[in-house]
């Protein structure tokens, strides 16, 4: 896997731009994801009903494909668990375990496949997390590509002078662990210098001003209220004693 200059990797969850959830507030999506995570505690009958509703929801939000991709990575584990549970306990239990795993594995794709880092930062601010924290988080995202380039350049530069330790086997790794500082020290130094350069550049542009305003804003829309209300209703129905 390779992180590109823009901080994206070939395995990064790609934003599903045409999903109706793209226009929803990140806080709503977070609530939605957490609520669905709770649903796994319910009984198998209710879980099966929920799974039907959830699948329809995924189709509507155009998130079925990324969710399936996510779950696909677990195919062997799921087959193994299903067979093992069926054999040792019961078919009901096997189905229950697999549905729980599928739900927990895919549910946060609702959030991460439909939210970009700027929206996450704005949501954190709305949740009263100080701007400095949201700002540093967004810098971390943006720096991925640059740091990745630097790490590769360090490896290359050290290998050109024969200073790249051999870590091709466990024992070589253990015996050469001290030599790994030829990678870690330059990486820490470069990262620190970058952090300092950003600090200076941000202060030179008035960072930390008490008058700061946000140009981009998040507003709760009708969709957000509908999603919140729908999720709450579903939770009540699923956990109601009937």
């Amino acid at each position: 896997m390779r992180i590109n200059r823009g901080g994206r990797s070939s395995r990064q969850l790609t934003l599903v731009e045409n999903s109706p959830l793209r226009s929803a507030d990140p806080r709503t999506k977070l609530f939605l994801s957490l609520a669905i995570s709770l649903v796994v505690m319910t009984s198998i009958e209710r879980l099966l009903i929920f799974l039907g509703v959830y699948l329809l929801f995924l189709v509507w939000t155009r998130l079925l494909s990324p969710t399936v991709q996510h779950v696909w990575r677990l195919k062997w584990l799921l087959i193994f668990l299903f067979a093992f549970d069926w054999w040792l306990i019961s078919l009901d239990h096997a189905v229950l375990i697999c549905i729980r795993l599928i739900l927990l594995t895919g549910v946060f794709a609702l959030f991460f496949s439909t939210t970009n880092t700027r929206e996450l930062g704005l949501a954190l601010e709305k949740l009263h997390i100080p701007y400095r924290y949201a700002f540093s988080l967004s810098l971390a995202f943006q720096s991925l590509g640059l740091l990745d380039d630097e790490w590769r350049a360090i490896r290359e530069a050290q290998s050109s002078r024969g200073a790249l330790p051999d870590s091709s086997s466990f024992w070589k790794l253990v015996t050469n662990v001290g030599d790994l500082i030829s990678l870690t020290v330059p990486a820490i130094v470069l990262t620190t210098k970058r952090a300092w350069a950003i600090t200076e550049a941000s202060y030179a542009r008035g960072f930390d001003s008490p008058h700061r305003v946000s140009y981009h804003t998040l507003e709760f829309s009708r969709l957000d209220f509908l999603l919140m209300a729908g999720t709450t209703l579903l939770l009540i129905l699923l956990f109601w004693r009937w």
Binding site: E150, A153, I154, A157, A163, S182, V185, P186, V189, K193
Partner: peptide, 8 residues
């Protein structure tokens, strides 16, 4: 280009 890549 960047000397910091190698010095430790």
């Amino acid at each position: 280009q960047n000397p910091d890549l190698q010095l430790f």
